[in-house]
Every structure is written in C-alpha cells, then in structure tokens.
C-alpha cells in the first residue's frame, strides 16, 4: 500500500459514513472504479462495518431474548410422547367422524320431505294382479286399467258404480291425481263399509294407501297409527312394507 495515504484512508471512512459533499463523493467513486488498492481498502472498511452491525444485531436480540425467556417460561414447552400423540390423533379422527356423521344426519333431516317419504312407499296399484277382474270388468275398472284416472273419479261421482272395488279404485285414482283429501275420504269410506258388513274386500290395500295419503297430506300422527297397526299384524298384506326406516322418517317429518 505504498501509494495509499492517510488522507485516502480518512476520505474512505468519510465516504463510508456518507458525509462527503457531492463533488468529493464523485471523485472517490471515480477512484474506486479505477484503483484496485483503493477499492480493496474500501471493501475492508465495509467488512469492518458489517462486523459492527452483526455484533449490534446479536446484542439487540440477546437483550430481548432474556426478557422473552422469562415470559415464555410461564408457559413451558412440553414434550409430547408418542402415546399421547396417538391419543390426540385418535381423538381427532373420532371428532372428524362425529362431525361427518352429524353432517350426514343433519342433511338427511333437512332434505327429507313428505313427498319423498310418500314416493319411497308408493307403488301404483296394478289391477291385472288383483283378484276377480276377468270377464265382467266394470267401466271404472276399465278406465283405471287404461290410466284414465280423471274418468275414474268422474264416473264414481256420477254414480256409475258404487261397489267397494269402485270405491277403492277411485281412492287410488285420487292418489294418482294428488288429490289427497279425496283419496283419504274414499279409503276411509271403504274401510267403514267393510267394518259394517264384516268384510275385508280391498281392506288391506285401503289401509296401506290411506296411510300414504295421510303422509302426503301432512297428517303424520294418523299415518303412524295406521302403519303401526299394519306392522303389528303379521297377516296384513302390506306388513313387510312397513319398515322401521319408514316409521323413523315419518317421526322426523313430525319433529320438523
């Protein structure tokens, strides 16, 4: 460093500190670009300043560290054993399952409707499978077989046929036409007539479809009463159709 003077050293420190006027600053920068020895001397000062800054930062953090450790020790960190971790994991999985099942049940509860429950139990009555429908088929039976449900109701109301079969098929037609009150009235009439005559013609069918009519009409208590009666009677034609699920769904509809 033969050419490097004390003056140069002072100049570089002033440049490092940012206290030079614009003119001198430009001179220094010019020399930094052209003189390697000058540049190395400046780099050495920069590294020295960096050492001070590192020390300052370390001291600052160390000063705060003590106080923070005091604060932290009031809530010490605990080791979590693998057994404890497994318990936590199991609890998390169980909680997730409970939430999942709960959400599923809630969804079922709120998405359930009378129409849905009705549809799950309803099946159109097929006359061809019914007893005694061969040669002398009534006008109402013919109309029902050809699915002219409006005509069935009109013919019955016009008095074309007042038999129990006509009474039942009119109830079924009303159900197909979503005329719940009319269906309820016809099925009830048929059941009353059977009781009066001590007969059972279409009685099981009327009871089952009456309970479905009650469901769609929102008369859940009546529906439940009737369905429990069917379930308790093992000889009832629709006994197997009354499932625990159906009864549970009607109760859920009642609670909402």
């Amino acid at each position: 460093m033969d050419n490097f003077t004390h003056n140069d050293e002072e100049l570089l420190v002033q440049y490092l500190d940012g206290v030079l006027d614009e003119h001198t600053k430009a001179e220094v920068e010019k020399k930094l670009n052209s003189d390697t020895e000058f540049r190395n001397a400046y780099e050495s000062l920069l590294l020295t300043k960096e050492a001070v800054k590192q020390y300052g930062l370390k001291e600052k953090v160390a000063g705060i560290h003590k106080g923070m450790m005091k604060e932290m020790q009031q809530a010490p960190i605990r080791h979590i054993s693998s057994a404890r971790r497994a318990v936590r994991y199991t609890i998390s999985v169980a909680a997730a399952l409970i939430v999942l099942i709960g959400s599923f049940m809630l969804y079922n509860f709120y998405s359930l409707s009378a129409e849905k429950v009705f549809n799950s139990g309803f099946q159109s009555y097929d006359l061809s499978t019914a007893r005694g429908n061969e040669e002398k088929e009534s006008v109402i039976a013919k109309a029902y077989r050809s699915k002219r449900f409006d005509d069935v109701v009109k013919l019955y109301e016009a008095g074309a046929d007042s038999s129990k079969e006509a009474m039942f098929l009119t109830g079924m037609s009303a159900l197909e036409l979503k005329e719940n009150s009319k269906a309820i009235s016809n099925f009830k009439m048929l059941i009353a007539a059977n009781q009066q005559n001590n007969e059972k013609l279409y009685n099981d069918d009327a009871e089952y479809y009456l309970s479905l009519s009650y469901i769609r009409n929102g008369d859940y208590d009546f529906a439940l009463g009737l369905l429990h009666k069917i379930k308790d009677d093992s000889n009832h034609r629709y006994n197997k159709k009354v499932t625990a699920k159906l009864l549970r769904q009607i109760k859920m509809l009642k609670w909402r």
Partner: peptide, 26 residues
C-alpha cells in the same frame, strides 16, 4: 466463523464498541 467475528468485536474496548455501535448500528 460468525461467532469468531463477534468475539473479535467483543474484544474491542468498551468505549470503542459503544461509539461504533451507536454510529454504525443505531
């Protein structure tokens, strides 16, 4: 290496450390 640098600064006299820190760090 960093710890060694800090040790060198630490060895500086208290007055020097104080002045340099106040000027270059603070």
């Amino acid at each position: 290496g960093k710890l060694a640098v800090l040790n060198v600064v630490e060895r500086l006299g208290e007055t020097c450390k104080k002045i340099l820190l106040l000027f270059y760090y603070e």
